[in-house]
Amino acid sequence: MTERRVTDAADTAPERTPAATAAPAAGEPRWLGAEEQRTWQAFLNATALLEDHLDRQLQRDAGMPHIYYGLLVHLSEAPRRRLRMTELAHDAKITRSRLSHAVARLEKYGWVRREECPSDKRGQLAVLTDDGFEMLRRSAPGHVSAVRGAIFDRLTPEQVDQLGDICRTIANGLQPASGADLPWLR
């Protein structure tokens, strides 16, 4: 429970104003105020529901989870439809172990193949096959419809701009320093 002060049934936290959350007592966490808590919970709820919505759509229409679709997209946008496995893990923000498992499944489907990296014999490339590209081409219309229906059709153009700004601000603030213990390097 990092977002609110832990209380027992008899202890109710007072409503926190921005001033109250801005200057906590020494050693006291900056607890989320009531509106911050509502926003945080709405964010968690929306992101969980969105991921589930997209996963179900892709499972139903293409027989693959959203993470696999994302890997195919990254490969389709790469030069010659190939990326080093470490770069693909970084782009997808997943561990190399999880990527290796996902690529093994995609290989079984015939959508991806691995090749040795010509510049580094220790490295491997993930390559999007023609069958994988065709699967991506067939599944993209349903996926974009699901994304549009879940997000963009519900927002005004101003809200779309705000959402983009907010997401970029959050992502930029969370970019780890070089040398950090990054999950996609494990």
Rank of each mutant, 00 (worst) to 15 (best):
I94T: 11
T129Q: 08
A150K: 09
R96Q: 10
E87I: 13
E87C: 06
I151Y: 11
V147A: 07
S139L: 11
R137E: 13
R114Y: 05
L125Y: 14
R148E: 12
L155F: 10
P118W: 07
R98G: 05
G110W: 10
R114N: 02
M85V: 00
R113N: 03
R96I: 00
L136N: 06
E116A: 14
R122S: 03
K121S: 05
Q124D: 03
L88D: 03
S97R: 12
L83D: 10
V112Q: 11
G110S: 10
E134Y: 09
R122A: 09
K108D: 15
T129D: 03
A92C: 02
L136F: 04
S145L: 08
D131N: 15
R122E: 13
E134K: 15
V127I: 04
L136Y: 09
D131T: 14
E116R: 14
D131A: 15
E107M: 15
L88F: 08
R96Y: 01
R82V: 02
S100R: 13
T129C: 03
I94L: 14
W111F: 07
P118S: 11
A146T: 02
A89I: 09
D165E: 10
Q162P: 07
G149K: 04
T156A: 08
G142Q: 06
R82M: 09
V147C: 12
L128F: 06
E134D: 14
R105W: 09
M85K: 05
T156Y: 04
S145M: 05
P118F: 07
L88H: 07
D130L: 06
K108V: 12
D120N: 08
E107V: 08
R105M: 03
T129E: 05
R80D: 14
R138N: 13
R105V: 01
R82N: 08
R80W: 09
H90Y: 09
V160C: 02
A126N: 02
R105T: 07
A140P: 01
S119L: 04
H90C: 04
Q162H: 11
V103C: 05
P118M: 07
D120C: 00
L128D: 02
H101P: 05
K93Y: 15
E134A: 15
H90G: 05
G110K: 13
L163R: 11
R113P: 00
